[in-house]
Each structure stands twice: as structure tokens, then as C-alpha cells.
């Protein structure tokens, strides 16, 4: 059922959910609250991805948008609409935009974790943001920002435990394949080259991870023909281990003394990414170390530009 609540308050919303629930049935076992802040991106896409995620992780989902006009809160509740949890869309008008946390705090579920997701533009220091402070996990997406690379770097510079950028989630399969390749070719790696489309934060982060783990020279090369990451070469004593992907779906894997083989390495859509991300609510130590390295690499290469990033 969909219930529209124009000009309302947190207490009203709470009351309406309770009474609506007695007719459509209680969801038991909602595991967390997801707050999606739809700024600088499409509300419909955010809602769709949230509903998708809610299908895998029954939860209370609060979708936050801002609108001009007199100070007012509009809400829309979706209950029992082919998702196990509650979906609450909140539109903040006027001055209320500055006090959004005051509405959200009474609406988060008791005891369980709170996750905030900024699919579009995000605050420069999510951990210090009033909404960000409600959460244990703060998920940003550099790809949703107008200029992805500086956005990712900025997050690395302001990293706080609990932050996570979906750029990292996009890397999981690449990292898995690269790690698996070194399970079997046990030669030390001497140097690494990562090539990716220009201004691509995913390649930048992969380079930082490889740098952090291997401690060797990692070169990042622009490949104007590609989509996302187009290839990684690990230069070892035994020869080159190479993983290349030119079309955004199939990758070719080659290693010394082995035939070249194909492996599916598709780019994943936002629904799949956020769903994977919500599987883990704990601190990601590997991400934290990689972001620290990314910040270090940035300072070393480009010390002057740090302050100017938006």
C-alpha cells in the first residue's frame, strides 16, 4: 500500500506505519535502516536500487530528497509493495533541509545498524555530516559525482572509519582474479601497470591497492579506447601476468607458460553494487589501508592540488 502524508512529522509517520502494519502484517526481522540521500542524482533510480537492495536485506529504507518552498515535510510510505520492509520517501522543503537529522533520528529502527548512502553528490567529510553521524556505515559513490577522480581523492583525504566508496565494490572481481593469479604464480612481482579510461576512479583505486599490497612501482596509464579498467599487467621474474578487458564484459587472462583464456568480468549495475555492499556492515580494513595509500600517492604526485579539490 502507498500512503501519502503531505506536511507531516516524524511522530505522524511512525504512527501511520504502526497502524498500516496491523492491516498488511508486521515485517519481522528487519535487519537495518538504510538512509538514501538522493542529491544530484535521479530520485527514481535511487528508489529502484533501494527497493532492489531491500529485497535482499529486509530493512527500513528512508529516501531523502530536498525541495524548495516553505519549510515543510512531505512523506510517502510504501508498505507491502513487493518488498519485505518499509520504504519511506521524505521530501524536505525550505529551512527543514538544514535539520533533516531531527526527522530521521526518530525513524531509524531500534538497536540495529544504520547505513547512509549518497548515490550522487556527497558531503566532503561524510563522517562529520549530521546525517552521516547517525550511521555506522557511510556509502558514497565517486561515479555519481560531477568529477569522479577528485571526489574519490577527497574521500581518501577525509577518510573516517565506516566510510566506503562504491568504487571499491566495483573492484572486487578484479581484485579476486588478480589475487587468484598470484596464488598460482608464486614469483615476486617487480612492477605493475594499470590501464583505464581517462578520469576513471576505479583504475586509480586499483593502482592504490596494488601499490599498498605489493610495495612496488605501480604505473597508471590512460587508455582512451576503454570503458573503466582495461587492463592490469603484473611484471614478475617468470614473465608477465596480464588481465585485459577491452569491451567491458569479457576479460582475457594470460600468464607465463599458459594458454590465453577468457573470463567473464562484466561491469555491474548500481543495484548489484549496493546490494553487495549491504552484505557487510563491518569496517573494511583493506579499504581503509587502500584509501590511506591513495591519499599518500596523491600527496606525493600532486601536493599543490589537494586544497583546490571541490
Amino acid at each position: 500500500m502507498i500512503i501519502d502524508l503531505p506536511d507531516t512529522s516524524a511522530a505522524d509517520i511512525g504512527q501511520r506505519i504502526l497502524s498500516a502494519r496491523s492491516s498488511v502484517g508486521m515485517p519481522t526481522g528487519l535487519v537495518f535502516t538504510l538512509i538514501a540521500v538522493a542529491e544530484g542524482c535521479s530520485y527514481d533510480e535511487v528508489l529502484a536500487a533501494s527497493i532492489d537492495a531491500g529485497r535482499e536485506h529486509p530493512s527500513r529504507i528512508l529516501v531523502v530528497t530536498n525541495a524548495p518552498g516553505d519549510t515543510r515535510l512531505d512523506a510517502q510510505l510504501r508498505l507491502g509493495e513487493d518488498v519485505p520492509g518499509d520504504i519511506i520517501s521524505l521530501v524536505f522543503h525550505g529551512d527543514l533541509v538544514k535539520h533533516r537529522a531531527s526527522v530521521l533520528l526518530p525513524l531509524v529502527l531500534p538497536d540495529s545498524s544504520v547505513v547512509v548512502w549518497w548515490p550522487g553528490t556527497a558531503p566532503s567529510a561524510p563522517g562529520l555530516d549530521p546525517i552521516g553521524r547517525l550511521a555506522v556505515r557511510r556509502i558514497t559513490d565517486a561515479m555519481g559525482a560531477p568529477d569522479p577522480v577528485p571526489a574519490l581523492v577527497e574521500r581518501a583525504l577525509h577518510y573516517a572509519p565506516g566510510d566506503l566508496d562504491l568504487t571499491w565494490t566495483r573492484l572486487t572481481k578484479w581484485r579476486g582474479l588478480l589475487a587468484a593469479s598470484l596464488d598460482h604464480y608464486r614469483a615476486p612481482v617487480r612492477a605493475v601497470t594499470v590501464s583505464s579510461a581517462p578520469r576513471n576512479p576505479v583504475g586509480l583505486l586499483l593502482a592504490a591497492w596494488l601499490d599498498d599490497r605489493l610495495g612496488v612501482e605501480v604505473t597508471l596509464v590512460d587508455d582512451p579506447r576503454g570503458i573503466g579498467i582495461t587492463g592490469v599487467t603484473l611484471d614478475t621474474d617468470a614473465g608477465e601476468i596480464r588481465l585485459t578487458r577491452t569491451d567491458g564484459t569479457m576479460a582475457a587472462f594470460s600468464a607465463p607458460g599458459l594458454p590465453r583464456r577468457l573470463v567473464a568480468l562484466p561491469r555491474r549495475d548500481i543495484n548489484a553494487l549496493i546490494t553487495e555492499e549491504l552484505r557487510r556492515l563491518d569496517e573494511d580494513a583493506a579499504y581503509s589501508a587502500t584509501m590511506a595509500r591513495l591519499a599518500g600517492r596523491w600527496r606525493a604526485n600532486d601536493p599543490g592540488s589537494v586544497e583546490e579539490t571541490p
Binding site: 581484485r175 588478480l178 589475487a179 598470484l182 596464488d183 608464486r186 612481482v189 596494488l210 599490497r213 605489493l214 610495495g215 573494511d284 580494513a285 583493506a286
Partner: peptide, 8 residues
């Protein structure tokens, strides 16, 4: 394997 980390 340098790319594997028990924390990861």
C-alpha cells in the same frame, strides 16, 4: 600471496 590479507 601478497595480494591476500586475512583482514580483506
Amino acid at each position: 600471496n601478497p595480494l591476500r590479507d586475512p583482514l580483506d
